[in-house]
Design a protein around this nucleic acid. Structure first.
Lengths: 315, 315
DNA sequence: ATCCAGCATAACCTAAGATTATGGATTGCT
DNA sequence: AGCAATCCATAATCTTAGGTTATGCTGGAT
């Protein structure tokens, strides 16, 4: 019955004192105002404007509308301002979830870049393993998830989880074998897994452990897992203490001290992909796009070519 | 850019959780919502709704709109309610101006009737002589003016003042001659003005005095005005004290005590018209119309036949 | 008396915003 | 896995809100 346009017109009439001036003030022509008032009057069934001679003035009902117009128009302006602020990266929120081993390296770098480029964006960060972070993404509790996928079987496993989502390949993270400095193979230039079938193994998170089992299976043995911890620092500590060997990604090795252990490249090499995941719609939200770019920059990836949809349309 | 309809849609989506439910809640069809959101998104250049699978949820920008919608829609509802209250006589204001001698009789009665029929209407009353009340009417400071016009020359004099205004004839107010009880003509059944050319006269307001002069002129003499007061009670007091004679309208005589004086009908009779005056537009405002009806009722006039435009279109 | 200023009206046009009909995609069920 | 149901998107169509230009009318000023 009453809309913002009507209120704007009534307020302009109240402010300007005539239809013609109101029309000028609003950038309309005079008949537009005249008809608008007529429509408003027949919609409300009330006389809003008193025409006396060639002057006009608002009736009590008209003044009511003009009075309410102030608040309503201010609220609309405020809403519009907030929207354009979000669109212009002068405001906005990004909820980031990343797996633990990335929070030590990739995430801080990303946040620093983001803060430098767009200081007014609010970033929330939550540590979560890929299954949880992707669930949050699907659930609407997260805007960007940083996940990883081991090459091979694991990628197929993730496929269904990534359905309807878009991913950006941030970097390849090579997995190395970490052995105590005193280990017989410590001086090797590369490690063949089969050579370590007799060692005791230190496993990480469930999916990392799955990857280890998969690689070992290919190499023809079943690893003797003596320790399990998701804390990579603890893993390195255990290796340092000579209690076993472990598979550790470069991402960790670049961040954590590991002076007293040997890190051997695997042969054949094995790596995991670090991915930024979001939804097609969120991708178009400026703050989210900025976060994705920052992630790419932090990972050293080219933002333009890193857009890769791991799982396209099912057809 | 953003209007009430858009906000209403966004809020409905936020509340209902899907386009379809939102459409039902608003009484629209689903495609209407779908298009509305699309339009809003391209107008604001922002993603407002995140479509994930077959569920939808608002983005941050969408939530901003939904949040503002509450306030804006509430304000619009409030405005609409105020308007309908005014239209339904559950609220509203009437600013009444009436000439002094009516405020003793006609106005109180009118206010009582109005208060009984429409207790929620606010009435303001200001005492003012016709020229001032009509000026206030033209100026927008008054909604209804109660004026009077002596039959004869005075009517023509008022014509230009009543231009662009509408009038309602409330009653005819007969003017009588008031003489001391001991006056030689006190016992007459009627008074011919010529018989009082030798008396001292007590005159009232400027226009009443003008009327007296006009009548006397017709009767062939120039009255000896010894006293002037706009206070009719004072006039009656002066007459009672035997200091002179006066022309006093019935409206006064019916309200004020005048036991010790004689009131003689004039011959030929002279009367003044009591008029309710307003503007054509204000006439259509419910509270004003109610006030006019109450005036008619208080004056004993038939509201339907009393509508009389003394001065029509100048053509 | 005449001219100017300001509102109303008519005729016309664009586009917002609704509808129905239909298609595509996801999700739950068997 | 296939099937059905659900939900959103799109196309085609229609109405009407709301704008324009052109013009008439009337009150007020010179």
């Amino acid at each position: 019955m009453i809309d913002a346009a009507g209120l704007r017109v009534m307020k302009a009439i109240a402010d300007e004192g005539s239809f013609t001036s109101a029309a000028n003030a609003l950038g309309f022509t005079q008949p537009a105002i005249s008809q608008m008032v007529r429509r408003l009057e027949q919609r409300t069934g009330t006389v809003l404007v008193e025409r006396y001679g060639r002057q006009v003035r608002l009736t009590e009902a008209g003044q009511v509308l003009a009075r309410h117009a102030v608040g309503v128009l201010a609220a609309l302006d405020a809403a519009e301002e907030e929207i354009t602020a979000i669109a212009g990266l002068r405001a906005g929120r990004v909820r980031l979830q990343a797996f633990p081993s990335s929070s030590a390296t990739l995430v801080p770098k990303t946040l620093a870049i983001l803060k430098a480029k767009h200081p007014d964006i609010t970033v929330t960060f939550t540590e979560a393993e890929p299954p949880e972070s992707l669930a949050a993404l699907r659930n609407g509790d997260c805007d960007v998830a940083v996940a990883f996928a081991y090459e091979g079987a694991d990628l197929g496993e993730l496929e269904e989880d990534l359905s309807l989502l878009v991913t950006r390949r941030l970097m390849d993270d090579e997995v190395r074998l970490v052995v105590p400095g005193a280990h017989p193979h410590a001086g090797d230039s590369a490690a063949s897994l089969a050579d370590f079938s007799g060692d005791e193994w230190i496993a990480g998170c469930p999916r990392c452990r799955g990857h280890l089992l998969s690689l070992a299976d290919h190499a023809g043995f079943r690893p003797n897992v003596a320790f399990e911890t998701e804390d990579y620092v603890a893993q390195l500590g255990l290796v340092t203490a000579g209690l076993g060997v472990a598979l550790v990604p470069d991402l960790i090795l670049n961040a954590a001290k590991h002076d007293e252990v040997a890190t051997l490249p695997l042969s054949p090499a094995s790596r995991r992909q670090i991915l930024a995941v979001t939804t097609p719609d969120l991708q178009r939200v400026p703050a989210v796009a900025a976060a994705l770019d920052a992630l790419c920059e932090a990972a050293g990836a080219d933002p333009r070519t890193s857009a890769a949809e791991l799982v396209g349309a099912k057809a």
